[in-house]
Design a protein around this nucleic acid. Structure first.
Lengths: 262, 262
DNA sequence: GTCGAAGGAG
DNA sequence: CTCCTTCGAC
């Protein structure tokens, strides 16, 4: 089983790159973030033509998540409020950042974590609130018997300094500040582990490079796209790799796909 | 000698289409309109790499003309005010629509005639004023001894009804209204003749098709891109053809090149 | 840098 | 329909 995650920065702008990649890399599941399109405009057919089913939750201009899978996922759940019965969940669901579905005994959770803009901004507080809510959302699934979790997506957080090309002074930087790292660690304390680090403990492996000032050609990257697995699935995992090829193409996304296999 | 004219609707958006076309069709001169780029941003190198010299007069967003030639043109003149010493010429030159240069005994004049928007608009009056000024500008060259003229470009006028896919009711339409046709005829009365009509008197030959509602696939076109020649050159002309192939490509200009040969 | 939006031009 | 602009987002 191969599960990929890819922030595509507009599925309409990236359609041919994504479809070409899927043809070359026929993963079982592809989790997409930043689709930037309302559901009625999502380009479903190109995916369906190559044998993928879709579960989508889109939003005009911003955000938007989707899961393409060879086997249709069951029990699709969209947003925090599909699980959490509280006002905050409904408010956070105005931004389309959460979709999940069941694949046999595994629940695939696809997330687009808020970026946070800057440490002193309202958006940073939103990110922290969102991560606290994510914990409660995931706790629901962790409690379920006979269910393993694969929580993947664009986390907009580098868990530790190995995940940044140059970590110096990055504690004041969005994506690596202590509070957001702690908020993510609180989520992982539910019993989730970073699949990539099962296989590789070195620095220098990144999944996102800023479009600006030659971030990619200078390998100024961050590893912010992750797969977090519950213990049994983590044990089963046999590989977790980053495919940087799509980032080399013309008009790429700023992120590149990451694939876990079990 | 082959002289082509092509409204490219942004040279930056059309660069590869234009360069590919020039490689396949190594005309002596290519007159471009609607380059939509200031001179410092004009993509000179791709033209120079394939053996063309450039004379350009650009404007951000709108208008802009350029001449690419295998032999560098001499005595480049930009705008009406290069010839006409009057306030109106200077005002009209705020829009970059006129460039000309000498190729041996022939002056190549490259024009992007104003569109005119609608018959009751200020822009229509501007178009008429511009054409009246064009007459005086060209009169200067017509008077010159030993100079023939090739006046080409996007005229935004269909000279007669054969030049429109469906001329019914088009007297109230921009590009075919009586006043603008008369304004153009007044220019041609200097002694200029439409090279295309030396070789073909039929309808159904067009150089522009609206991007909207499948104008090209339904062949709802207009012949508004012309070469006008002084008598000796008109006699020498051996062909004038429209190459519709570039209009069939992905992301084409709405115009396609027209080539005169002598 | 590249995306989408909205608005104007053709 | 496709272009360009300005704008905010990331």
């Amino acid at each position: 089983m191969k599960i990929a995650t890819w922030n595509v920065n507009s599925i309409r702008s990236r359609l041919s790159i994504v479809i070409d990649w899927l043809k070359q890399n026929p993963v079982d599941v592809l989790c997409l973030q930043e689709t930037k399109v309302i559901d009625s405009d999502f380009p479903r057919e190109p995916f369906e033509e190559i044998g993928y089913s879709l579960a989508i939750s889109g939003q005009k201009s911003y955000n938007g998540v989707a899961i393409a899978s060879r086997t249709p996922l069951t029990d699709i759940k969209i947003g925090f409020s599909s699980i959490l019965n509280r006002q905050l969940a409904t408010e956070l669901d105005e931004q389309k950042r959460v979709i999940s579905g069941q694949l046999g005994a595994v629940r695939i959770v696809n997330l687009y974590v808020p970026n946070g803009a800057a440490l002193d901004s309202d958006k940073y507080e939103y990110k922290l609130r969102w991560l606290a809510t994510l914990r409660d959302y995931l706790a629901h699934f962790v409690k379920e018997k006979n269910t393993e979790l694969c929580v993947c997506g664009d986390f907009n957080i580098a868990l530790d300094d190995r995940d940044i090309y140059n970590p110096k002074g990055k504690e004041k930087h969005i994506m690596s500040s202590p509070m957001e790292r702690e908020a993510l660690e609180n989520v992982l304390a539910l019993g989730l582990k970073d699949a990539f680090r099962k296989f590789n403990s070195e620095t220098g492996y990144f999944s996102w490079w800023d479009y600006r000032q030659g971030g990619f050609s200078r390998n100024r990257g961050w590893r912010i796209d992750h797969h977090y697995l519950t213990p049994k699935l983590y044990e089963k995992a046999v590989a977790c790799t980053i495919d940087i090829e799509p980032r080399k193409l013309e008009k790429p996304s700023d992120h590149t796909p990451v694939i876990v296999e079990w």
